[in-house]
Amino acid sequence: MPPSSDPVVPTVTPVTISYSELQDKDKDLSVKIEEGFGPNGLGILSITQVPGYSSLRGNLLRL
Score class of each variant (00 low, 15 high):
Gly43Gln: 07
Val31Cys: 05
Ser30Glu: 10
Lys32Phe: 07
Leu63Thr: 10
Pro2Gly: 10
Val31Thr: 08
Leu60Thr: 14
Pro14Asp: 07
Arg57Gly: 01
Pro51Arg: 09
Gln49Asp: 15
Met1Pro: 04
Glu34Pro: 01
Pro39Tyr: 10
Asp28Tyr: 13
Glu21Val: 01
Thr13Pro: 04
Lys27Arg: 15
Ser46Gly: 10
Ser54Gln: 15
Leu60Trp: 06
Pro10Lys: 13
Val50Asn: 07
Leu22Asn: 05
Thr48Met: 05
Ile33Lys: 00
Pro14Ser: 09
Ser4Ile: 15
Asp6Tyr: 10
Ser5Ala: 14
Leu63Gln: 07
Pro7Leu: 15
Thr13Asp: 05
Val9Gly: 00
Thr13Glu: 02
Arg62Leu: 01
Asn40Tyr: 11
Met1Leu: 11
Pro10Gln: 02
Ser20Ala: 10
Gly58Trp: 12
Asn40Ala: 13
Asp26Tyr: 02
Phe37Gln: 15
Ser54Gly: 07
Pro14Cys: 07
Phe37Val: 09
Pro3Phe: 09
Pro39Phe: 12
Val15Tyr: 03
Ser30His: 15
Glu21Ser: 10
Leu56His: 08
Gln23Lys: 11
Ser20Leu: 07
Pro14Phe: 09
Leu22Ile: 02
Pro3Glu: 08
Pro51Asp: 04
Thr11Lys: 04
Gly41Met: 05
Ser4Leu: 13
Gly38Tyr: 06
Gln23Tyr: 05
Ser5Gly: 05
Ser54Asp: 15
Val8Pro: 00
Gly36Ser: 03
Val31Arg: 14
Ser30Val: 05
Pro14Trp: 07
Gly43Asp: 12
Ser55Phe: 04
Val15Pro: 09
Val15Cys: 01
Lys32Ile: 00
Leu29Tyr: 03
Lys25Cys: 10
Asn40Thr: 09
Ser46Ala: 06
Asp26Arg: 07
Tyr19Asp: 12
Leu63Trp: 11
Val8Ile: 08
Asp24Ala: 09
Ser46Thr: 12
Glu21Phe: 07
Ser46Phe: 10
Gly41Gln: 03
Leu22Phe: 05
Ser54Thr: 12
Leu61Ile: 09
Glu35Phe: 00
Pro14Ile: 08
Val8Leu: 11
Gly58Ala: 13
Ile33Phe: 06
Gln23Cys: 11
Gly43Phe: 08
Asp28Met: 14
Thr16Lys: 02
